[in-house]
Design a protein around this nucleic acid. Structure first.
Lengths: 193, 193
DNA sequence: GAAAACCTGTGATAAATATCACCGGTTTAT
DNA sequence: ATAAACCGGTGATATTTATCACAGGTTTTC
């Protein structure tokens, strides 16, 4: 059950068997159904989630009920609302599952204790954070550009998303409407001939 | 000289005098003039910068020579290109000073050694990262929305920027043209009467 | 297995935003 | 000290993108 996570951690740092045991002790595995919430607007975020299998999304619901997707999480990604967790304030985001999924759950305090008890986990998490930050910065950069460039960047970096999530969710991720995305795709196919 | 940084660290964690000494040993203070580069496209980023006084910007130069500002750094902010530093690949960003500034410089390896030697610095840096990530996520959210909402969010969260940086830089930060920003401002003044 | 809900594509139109051009006022460089 | 560069505002216009409406195909639900 935990092998997926161990394999991922092994790509960054080495854990002793004893440390793996300590880690397991604070992990809880959880099955979530498609459309099921892990976090809802107004909650205070208390957990960090690691996707073993499936797909999560994090989004804000604007006025006019429009859903703005901040992030997806597929296999081997962590997802949480750090801001809410760090400050103890209610979150503005929702996290739910786009597919039936299996996740590992770590509670906030247990996570911080892990950092203290297992230096390697501390390094692993910092690496995860740095990586997440770097990717988010790149996304920020593209969100400052017109729709066509956003889509081009998406195809270049994340084209495999297309197999997993619907067009309208990709459009939301790119900050454009589904209609505009549909037209950009048509245009791209045309220009590649 | 280092009191600014110590004061900032103190807001998050406590350092012993011995630890402060160790920290000072790896810090180099540096004066940078307005327009002077700290990092240029193509460099591999090797340093993390802490602004004691002044203001930095991090930006990408697109085709058509357009500057896309990813981030500002004022007093008490750290700035670096984590992605380049983490992966050792050349950066796509430039970092330069918008005002004559004083910064503290830490070299990559020294920084990682700090994390190992001083647990409190480790926690401090993780907090910085979490905070930076949370803010960037909020920015991502607003970049998915129309110009008027971006500007409104800017005024709400960062209006003090306006005293420090030019309109065109703010426009770049918001991902809109300076003309559009100018019109939004005019419109805001009008509607507030 | 029929009805409802959902998803993608596409046309017509409206709204938002960018581009281009020009202005006067300020700062910078020689 | 003067010219040059920069800066922010504003009008006219072009381009991009959103909105609205509808249609056919698929999936979900009861």
């Amino acid at each position: 059950m935990y092998t997926t996570l161990f394999a991922h951690i092994d790509q960054h740092v080495s854990l002793t068997d004893k440390e793996k045991e300590m880690l397991c002790a604070v992990l809880v595995s959880k099955k979530v159904r498609r459309r099921q919430y892990l976090l809802q607007e107004g909650d205070v975020c208390q957990h960090d989630y690691f996707v073993i299998d499936g797909c999560l999304r994090q989004y804000e619901v604007g006025e006019n009920d429009k859903e703005n997707i901040v992030q997806f999480a597929f296999e081997n990604w962590w997802m949480s609302d750090w801001f809410s967790m760090l400050t103890g304030t209610p979150t503005v985001y929702n996290i739910d599952a786009l597919e039936d999924s299996t996740v590992l759950v770590v509670e906030k305090k247990a996570l911080h204790q892990l950092f203290i008890d297992i230096p390697a986990m501390d390094i692993y998490f910092r690496n995860m954070l740095l990586q997440a930050y770097a990717y988010l910065q790149r996304r920020t950069l593209y969100l400052q550009k017109p729709a066509e460039e956003r889509y081009a960047a998406f195809v270049k970096h994340y084209s495999w998303f297309e197999q997993r999530v619907s067009q309208q969710h990709i459009a939301s991720f790119l900050g454009i409407t589904r209609e505009t995305l549909s037209r950009l795709k048509a245009q791209q196919i045309k220009s590649s001939r």
